[in-house]
Simulated assay, not measured.
Amino acid sequence: MRTKIIIALCMLSGAVNAAQSDFSWHGYVSQGITQSQGSSFITDNGAVTAELTEIGLNGYYRLAENISIAGQVNYLDGGNRFEQGTRLDYLFIDWKIPELAFGWKAQVHIGRYKNRHWLYSVTRDVPQTRYTSVLPQSVYFDGFRDVALGSNGIQTSFSHFSTNNIWEVNWSYGRSAINDSQRDFLLGNEARGKIKQEFVHQASVFWQPSSMKWKLGASWLNSDFTYSPAQQDNRLAGNSNVERIMLTAQYFAENWEISSELLRETQDNEGLFAPNFARKTRGEGGFVQVRYIFNSEFSGLIGYDTYVSDESDPDGKRLEAMSGGTIPAYFGYQDTVTLGARWDIAPKWRLQGEYHWVEGATRVVSLLNDNVASHADKRWEMWSLQLMYKF
């Protein structure tokens, strides 16, 4: 926390010299009201709450012609969705290489870089760039927001613009710290030890025609985690490997935008629950959402999102049988229909609202929590209304 505060103060002090062309800074403030009815996804009691606060300050400083530093400090309060408080979203050195062989350009980020491999991963930290406050949970589940947003390490991006095609190729290698709330989502709230992400290795490729009406892409992720138990702990030492493959597609028209991502992820666990425990599961899902722009001020959105935690048990019946009935079958999947709207009230002001109808609860809480059935009904709803200001 001390490091984050120091960085924030340094960025604020630099704002005094904002008139210099080498430095720029921006920020945003967002406040809303929200509710989840029939689940503990946002709150535990289903009440309307103001736990929808986002405050961010980001800065950019050019050290040389092709070298700069970028960073952002963020305060986040989203109820049960993630840990409340201040965090350093990113802080990295940006090195631009304008000319490589065959017309390619390159960009290198060293430090805490932002994830560029998914459709909305690089913009999910700023409320004005999200079409909904709660993104499709199949891909962007909030329990791992900080880990998925960025990592500490190195990221490279290569781009090529030709007469007919635009290519982007990304590669990154790093790791993130795992806080207690993220540990509880993975191993349940009875875990007392520490989870360490050993590494996260990612690669992606995107293609667009010169008209930029289409965007197609594919990405790959591989990550290892290890668990070190506390002296008194009902979890054992163990490790887990996660591998994710995703396909991405976007289409842009004058008033329409259609976006979709499909994923398949494999989780391979050893130890943790018993000395010889070993289990491998494969989840899959994805989303499609359609946005219509009525005019320069108003737009609407409709989306569908789906995810199953084990493709061999899509309705969760085997999960319920294996748990002796303590975990209802609907915790094996989650299907969501979303309606959203935004209104740009003024150049720096935006009002955004959304409503989600959900069946299933596999992204609500860890299946290892005590009395998991109390965390969500089979069918539940959530909504939010959020006012945003950027400066």
Results as ranks from 00 to 15, higher is better:
residue 100 L to Y: 03
residue 342 R to M: 08
residue 136 P to M: 10
residue 265 E to L: 06
residue 324 G to L: 10
residue 24 S to W: 06
residue 78 G to E: 03
residue 215 K to V: 00
residue 6 I to P: 00
residue 204 S to V: 11
residue 150 G to T: 02
residue 11 M to T: 06
residue 150 G to I: 00
residue 63 L to R: 00
residue 118 W to H: 08
residue 155 Q to L: 15
residue 373 A to K: 13
residue 239 N to S: 15
residue 186 L to D: 01
residue 127 P to H: 11
residue 175 R to P: 01
residue 233 D to N: 12
residue 89 D to K: 11
residue 331 F to W: 13
residue 83 E to K: 15
residue 346 A to N: 12
residue 136 P to T: 04
residue 137 Q to P: 03
residue 382 M to N: 06
residue 291 R to Y: 02
residue 101 A to H: 05
residue 310 D to K: 14
residue 320 E to F: 01
residue 127 P to M: 06
residue 284 E to P: 01
residue 239 N to W: 11
residue 351 L to E: 02
residue 99 E to Y: 13
residue 39 S to F: 08
residue 287 F to G: 03
residue 187 L to A: 01
residue 64 A to D: 10
residue 220 W to D: 00
residue 371 N to K: 05
residue 118 W to Y: 12
residue 193 G to A: 09
residue 202 Q to K: 15
residue 149 L to V: 02
residue 26 H to R: 14
residue 87 R to T: 08
residue 295 N to Q: 04
residue 66 N to P: 00
residue 72 Q to V: 02
residue 256 W to N: 07
residue 10 C to L: 14
residue 203 A to T: 13
residue 14 G to M: 13
residue 46 G to Q: 06
residue 165 N to G: 02
residue 80 N to T: 07
residue 248 T to D: 07
residue 35 Q to V: 11
residue 104 W to I: 02
residue 3 T to A: 07
residue 140 Y to C: 08
residue 11 M to V: 02
residue 71 G to T: 06
residue 337 V to A: 10
residue 247 L to D: 01
residue 208 Q to C: 07
residue 257 E to A: 13
residue 107 Q to A: 11
residue 34 T to C: 14
residue 376 A to W: 06
residue 359 E to T: 15
residue 45 N to R: 14
residue 260 S to K: 01
residue 120 Y to W: 13
residue 131 Y to I: 05
residue 195 I to R: 05
residue 92 F to T: 05
residue 11 M to K: 12
residue 267 Q to C: 02
residue 207 W to T: 04
residue 149 L to G: 00
residue 377 D to E: 13
residue 130 R to L: 08
residue 231 Q to Y: 10
residue 113 Y to V: 10
residue 86 T to I: 11
residue 110 I to E: 03
residue 310 D to E: 11
residue 2 R to Y: 07
residue 284 E to H: 05
residue 232 Q to S: 13
